[in-house]
């Protein structure tokens, strides 16, 4: 039968088969570790018992979801997640944008390169490592407190105080990422027409005016795109960082969705309840991503995915 088809058609089928073969290995893993867990979310509607499996466990409808909203914990966890994530996003963006503008003013090639090399580094290090660095610096007798004491200020229990721990989380995250995140802004600044700056300078515009009226408007498309992109991670307050720095005394201000799901669902083996919280989280994240994508497409003609 194949012989009757035109040669173009048969090449096409052959090619198509080769393409299927190229995609096949990836799809196997995507189904196993991407789609199978999605199917496993059924357990959120069951009293899931691992020994009985998804097909043997009893269905309980929305029991775990209803239970979730009766817990006082969940409000606290959502509030912490949003405060920590938004703090990181807003302060992180402000610092990276400011840093890229300032760095662009540095004319000494050597200095510029050196600073870039240093500030990009923390991004590539694990929170496991940076948490140890932070704990050495911020413990009650650490270097930071010694500096505070030496200038006559009171020592602060950064890691064990409900008043400052969240600020420490936000601050150290901004510290880790501002350098790396400034890369895209720096690229945007380099793309701005130098003639605009020269013309403005000749007209007597001060540096501030030029930054405000030329540099920042020139960066605006990238700033909008990054805002939309970053806002999609508003439910992701940074498990690795928090898990490595927090302790029960600061759960009140630092327990977030992911740490909560991990502790209650996985360590506490309340699989169905944990999956229910996780499902809510994933659905909200999906909605945010899709809408952020729509908005950026409208505003900047670019897409997140």
């Amino acid at each position: 039968m194949k012989k009757t088809k035109s040669s173009i058609k048969s090449t096409r089928t052959r090619n198509s088969l080769q393409y299927h073969a190229m995609v096949f290995p990836g799809m196997v893993f995507l189904i196993l570790f991407g789609y199978l867990p999605m199917f496993g979310l059924i357990m959120a509607f069951q009293d899931f018992i691992p020994a009985k499996g998804l097909f043997g466990s009893q269905f309980v409808g929305f029991k775990h979801f209803a239970y979730m909203f009766t817990l006082p914990d969940i409000g606290r966890v959502i509030r912490n997640t949003l405060i920590i994530a938004l703090g990181k996003i807003i302060l992180g963006m402000l610092l990276s944008i400011a840093f890229s503008i300032l760095l662009n003013e540095i004319r000494l090639k050597f200095l510029k390169k050196t600073v870039q090399t240093i500030v990009y580094l923390p991004h590539f290090l694990s929170w496991v490592v940076l948490a140890a660095v932070a704990m050495n610096l911020f413990n009650i007798d650490g270097s930071v407190n010694q500096i505070l004491a030496s200038i006559g200020l009171e020592k602060i229990n950064f890691l064990g105080s409900n008043n400052v721990f969240r600020k420490l989380l936000i601050g150290t995250d901004v510290w880790k990422e501002f350098g790396y995140n400034s890369v895209v802004y720096l690229a945007a600044i380099t793309g701005i027409d130098a003639g605009l700056h020269e013309a403005a300078a000749i007209d007597g515009a001060s540096w501030w005016k030029r930054v405000w009226h030329i540099t920042i408007p020139g960066m605006l498309p990238i700033i909008l795109l990054m805002t939309a992109m970053n806002l999609t991670s508003v439910l992701n307050a940074g498990f690795d960082q928090i898990y490595n720095l927090y302790s029960p005394i600061v759960y009140e201000v630092s327990d977030v969705l992911d740490t909560y799901i991990y502790r209650i669902g996985l360590v506490g083996r309340q699989y169905s309840f944990g999956a229910a919280v996780g499902l809510c989280r994933s659905i909200v994240a999906l909605i945010m991503l899709v809408s952020a994508n729509k908005i950026t497409e409208k505003l900047t003609n670019q897409r997140i995915y």
Binding site: L36, M38, F39, G40, M43, A275, R281, L289, Y305
Partner: peptide, 13 residues
């Protein structure tokens, strides 16, 4: 990329 089963179902798999 947009949606995932989350920590616990992945662990069970």
């Amino acid at each position: 990329m947009l949606f995932n089963g989350g920590m616990i179902p992945t662990y069970i798999v």
